[in-house]
């Protein structure tokens, strides 16, 4: 069959265009461009070349064997160093100039240990507003081996509620006898031999007056603070942060 003239013209144009496409596809563009394998290899190469921010516990252990050992027996044995200290690969590379972060204030530990109903039962949780407020956690708990501090408990058999309250307060570590003097008789016949109670502002001032020796206790100017009131009219001594 003989094709009419217009078809031959059309075929010529189509052939030119097709040839151009084929030339671009097979000659102009290098074959490596079409290699999926090569593209992916390059993508993997870029991916694995990315820098690391978290060095990993093994890197920390190389220098901090002591902390690692302390941690390895305690409740935090499975907590990686960088969970608290933050990404420290730079510190591992250059330990002298780059120092990792060390969380010391109260905001940090409640990230894990604040009470949340959704947290698993048995996981140690506290109420951050009631649990010894204002004090940094690390004054009572060693983060590398966190055990609840040993609190005085010789009176707790009878005064359990006070003991529990005090155990979470900033007076947690004080013996009951710091403020109360109880005779042996009190243990046998509690009503007949009552323990003493502080009577004066100056008693609290032994720790809390400006210039007092105890460095951890918050200080006030006894002459200016609270006027004629006694301390315990505002501060409950077993949980002194709470202004009842």
């Amino acid at each position: 069959m003989k094709f009419p003239e217009q078809v031959r013209r059309l075929a010529a144009v189509t052939a030119v265009v097709l040839a151009a496409v084929l030339v671009v596809r097979f000659v102009v563009i290098p074959a490596s461009y079409f290699s999926t394998k090569l593209h992916r290899a390059n993508a993997v190469k870029r991916e694995v070349a990315r820098p690391v921010s978290f060095a990993g516990v093994l890197a920390c252990r190389e220098c901090h064997e002591e902390q690692f050992d302390a941690k390895s027996h305690g409740y935090h044995k499975n907590v990686a160093c960088e969970t608290c200290h933050g990404p420290s690969a730079k510190h591992a590379d250059d330990p002298m100039t780059v120092k990792p972060y060390a969380p010391r204030d109260r905001k940090f530990c409640p990230v894990c240990h604040a009470y949340d109903a959704a947290r698993p039962t048995g996981f140690p949780q506290i109420n951050p507003t009631a649990h010894n407020p204002l004090k940094p956690c690390i004054t009572c708990h060693n983060p590398h081996d966190p055990v609840p501090p040993e609190v005085p408990h010789e009176c707790s058999a009878c005064h359990a509620q006070i003991a529990r309250t005090k155990a979470l307060s900033s007076h947690a570590l004080l013996e009951c006898t710091t403020c109360h003097t109880a005779s042996e008789q009190h243990k046998v016949a509690p009503r007949s031999a009552l323990p003493t109670k502080p009577q004066t502002r100056e008693f609290c001032g032994q720790c809390h007056a400006s210039g007092a020796a105890n460095p951890d206790a918050p200080k006030v100017d006894l002459a200016a603070h609270g006027g004629a009131y006694l301390c315990w009219q505002c501060h409950y001594p077993h949980q002194p942060e709470g202004m009842e």
């Binding site: 921010s53 978290f54 990993g56």
Partner: peptide, 11 residues
Amino acid sequence: LLPACVEVCPT
């Protein structure tokens, strides 16, 4: 190394 999320998971 472990993935970062696994590395830091405290529990």
